[in-house]
Simulated scan of single mutants.
Amino acid sequence: MSSLSPEQIKAATRQAWEKSADGWNRQTPQIHAWLAPATVAMLDSARRVGPGGSVLAPDISAAILQFAQENAQRAGLANVEIRVGDAEALSVEAASFDAVVCRLGLMFCPEPLLALRQAYRALKPGGHIAVLVFSEPQHNPCIGILMSTALQHAGLPPRDPFQPGSLLSLGKPGLLDALFREAGFSEVTTSRLDAPFRLPSAEDYLSFVRTSASPIMQLLGQLDAVAQAAAWAAMKDKLQAFQSPIGWAGPNELLLTHGARPAQ
């Protein structure tokens, strides 16, 4: 278990994403290519917004939302509202939304059950929710390599991969289903989605991590330049295991969990 309080976890998460927002935004093409099939499955599961609908996009990071606003305007999407907010304490009207989706975000909540209860409260009866998170460590070896190497070079002990607020915190089999049901959702189903990250080389993957993977940067940011260089070199060496003649493919597996607020 994490020794940090939920508020400390949120503060660290907010700070990390404030620093990584620009890099994450610049990596948009790579992120789209990586997550496109999983995103389509998530949206299909929760239903899509029609021409007369609207979208509220809350996030804990104001910097992330600024880029979201600019990207929405550039795409001509006038029906998207952004709002800084805490998923565990949403300030929205009860029973006012038809659907809730969350792509690789719920696992950062220190108390995900609170976030799911907020989503339940926001949904209209009969409304749907779909959430994407990473599955178990053995199916996401690149995350394990990055985290274990960063911890080792930072002189820190290994961490429980399922600790609250971490990348793999909701990957334990059956956990997300149980949380959905405890929050009140029915029709709960979970499917596994293969989501390899394909790039020309391990170095390209590490370039992505350097600019946009905030949990790793939190650890390495405390080291001097020489120690950081040694950590990156060790990561690259281990990640070469996923190189092939046609490119680099880092294995990732996601869990897509769907639920509904009962109509009655």
Rank of each mutant, 00 (worst) to 15 (best):
E7L: 09
T13C: 07
S20K: 00
G23Y: 14
L35A: 01
A38E: 02
M42I: 03
M42P: 04
D44R: 12
L56D: 03
I60D: 03
A68G: 11
A68C: 14
A72M: 03
Q73Y: 02
R74C: 07
A87W: 10
E93K: 12
A94G: 13
A94T: 08
S96A: 13
D98N: 15
L104S: 11
M107L: 07
F108Y: 15
C109K: 01
P110T: 10
R121T: 07
I129R: 00
I129Y: 02
A130P: 01
P137T: 02
P137E: 08
G144V: 01
T149A: 03
Q152N: 12
F162M: 12
Q163F: 05
P164A: 14
P164S: 09
S169Q: 06
L175T: 13
L179W: 01
L193N: 10
F197M: 15
L206I: 11
V209E: 04
R210P: 05
S212Q: 11
A213F: 08
A213E: 08
A213W: 06
D224T: 09
D224W: 13
V226I: 13
A230C: 12
A233I: 12
M235R: 07
K236L: 14
P245T: 10
I246V: 14
A249H: 02
G250R: 00
E253H: 05
T257A: 10
A263G: 05
